[in-house]
Write a protein that binds this DNA or RNA. Structure first.
Lengths: 250, 250
DNA sequence: CGTTGTCTTGAAAGTTGTCAATACTTGTGG
DNA sequence: CCACAAGTATTGACAACTTTCAAGACAACG
C-alpha cells in the first residue's frame, strides 16, 4: 500500500517521466501520438494478492504494467493451476479485438498499471502504426518465451526447472542493470514457493526440496527464504540442462 | 511426393485461387497489396520428414503454410525434444525483425509453403498496415494457444493430455468443416506416437498405453493405428479435465 | 520374404505427488 | 511485552504415476 503510493511518485500525467516510457507499448510513439494516448489513459493500483481480471470477464481496458508484478494463470475445476505468464513493468495486459479475458491476472506485489479504455485504444491503434508495430514486436517476444517455457514444462526435471527459473530471474536482473553478471551475484525471489510451483508445473513441496538440494550442492546460497546468492553462475546454468554455448546470460 | 504435386494444382501465380487466401497473413490485403506480395513470393515444397529450418539458422524468408503439416520444436543437448507448435495450412513461419530462427521447423507430411524474402516482406509490411494487423491478430491467437498448451504440459495427467490432443484435433476438423461435431465423428491422427509424445511431454510408450486405455474404456475406437472414432464427444471432453460448460467443441 | 519403421505391452525402477508433522515469520490483540 | 493466529516454508514417509529397458507384433516396402 505504501509501495503503491511511492510508485506513483512520478507525475501520472506526464508520459515523459514514465519509468516504462522506453519499453512499453507506447515506446515508439511520437509526441503527438503520446498526447492522444495520454488523453485516454488512467492509472490504477492493486494491493498484493488482489485480482486484476478473472478469466471470462469482459475486458473494459487494456493496460501496461508500470510497477510491481502480476501473474497470468489458468485454473482447472479441481483447483490445479498453471501460471502462463509473469507480467513485469512494461508488459502489456489485454488484447485488442477480443473482449473476454482468457486468463486470470493477479497482482503478486503491489501493482500500478496504466490503463487505456479498450475501444478508444483500438481506434487509436488503427490510426497509429507505431503502436501496432510495437505491440506486434512485444507479442512475438512473448510467444517466443512461452515456447521456451513449454520445453521447461514438458521435458525438464524438477531440479532443472528450479535452476531454469533462477537463471531467468538472474538474467532479468542483469538486463535491467540491477546487478552485473558476475559470479557472486544475488537476487530476490519475487514469488512464493507456491507461485514458483504454479509457474513450473510442480508442487510446492517439490520446489522446496529442490531448492534445498541446490543449496546442499553449493549451487546457491540462501539468505532467508527469498534472497539467493549465486556463487558461480556457470554452475547454475549447467544445472538448467540448456546448451550453454555462446557465453553465460546472453 | 504425389501429395505435393497434387497440392500445387491451383495456379501458383494466382493468389485468387489460393486455398489459404482468406486465412493467411495476406487475408486482409486489397488487390493492389496482393499484387505487391505476389511480386516477391515463391513456392517451395518439402517431403515428409525433411527439415525446413534449423534453430540458429539465418532465416532468409518468412512463409505461409499452403498445404501439409509442419512442426516447430526444440531439442536439448541430450536429445529430449519438445514440440512447441503445430503448423497447419495458413499458419505463418518466421518472424519479421529477427534473422536467427529460434526453433526447428520440420515437415511431418509433404509440405508446400508460400515464401516471401524477408527483407522485401519487412519493407512491404511497413507500408501495408493490413499485413501487420493480420500478423498481430494471428500472433495473439498463437500466444493464447501456446498458453493453453502450458496448462496441458504443466498440470494434466498422461490420460488427460491424450484426451486433450484428441479434442484439439477433433475441434480443428469441425472448424475446417471436415466433419460435423456429432457423436460418432472420426478423425485421422496426423502425428506418429513419437510426435504426439513430443507434443505432450510424454514418452511414446506412455502415449501408446494411454491410447490403449482410452480404447479399453470405450472413449475411443481405433481403426488401424491412425484413425480414431469418437462414439461420444462429451465423454472425450470429460476426460480432458477441462471445464465443459458452454457446450462441446465451441 | 526379410528389413525397417511403427506400435504395443510387460516388469522394474525412479521421480514426483500426497499426506502429515513441524518450524519460522509476521502481525494482532490481550 | 507476550501469546496466538495465519501464512509461508521445510522435511519425512509412503503412494502413485511415468519412465526406462526389453521383447515382440504389425504393416509397408523393396
Amino acid at each position: 500500500m505504501n509501495t503503491a503510493i511511492k510508485d506513483a511518485a512520478f507525475n501520472p500525467r506526464d508520459c515523459g517521466s514514465c519509468p516504462i516510457r522506453h519499453r512499453a507499448v507506447c515506446s515508439r510513439c511520437e509526441p503527438d501520438e503520446l498526447d492522444r494516448l495520454d488523453a485516454i489513459k488512467y492509472y490504477r493500483s492493486y494491493e498484493a494478492g488482489q485480482p486484476v481480471i478473472w478469466a471470462g470477464d469482459h475486458m473494459e481496458f487494456v493496460a501496461s504494467v508500470v510497477s510491481g508484478i502480476a501473474t497470468l494463470s489458468q485454473t482447472m475445476e479441481d483447483g490445479r493451476t498453471q501460471m502462463v505468464g509473469l507480467l513485469l513493468p512494461s508488459d502489456f495486459i489485454g488484447r485488442p479485438g477480443r473482449d473476454l479475458a482468457p486468463f486470470d491476472v493477479v497482482a503478486v506485489s503491489d501493482l500500478t498499471v496504466c490503463c487505456f479504455r479498450k475501444k478508444p485504444f483500438e481506434e487509436l491503434m488503427a490510426s497509429t502504426p507505431s503502436i501496432g508495430t510495437r505491440l506486434l514486436q512485444m507479442t512475438l517476444d512473448e510467444l517466443d518465451s512461452a515456447r521456451e517455457w513449454m520445453l521447461v514444462l514438458g521435458r525438464k526435471t524438477a531440479r532443472e526447472k528450479i535452476a531454469s527459473l533462477l537463471a531467468i530471474l538472474a538474467r532479468r536482473d542483469v538486463v535491467l542493470g540491477k546487478t552485473p553478471p558476475t559470479s557472486g551475484m544475488s537476487l530476490d525471489l519475487p514469488l512464493t514457493r507456491e507461485a514458483m510451483a504454479d509457474y513450473l508445473g510442480l508442487t510446492l513441496e517439490t520446489v522446496s526440496r529442490q531448492i534445498s538440494a541446490l543449496k546442499k550442492a553449493g549451487v546457491i546460497i540462501l539468505e532467508g527464504k527469498r534472497h539467493v546468492i549465486i556463487p558461480d553462475i556457470e554452475v547454475l546454468l549447467a544445472e538448467t540442462g540448456d546448451d550453454v554455448d555462446g557465453g553465460p546470460l546472453t
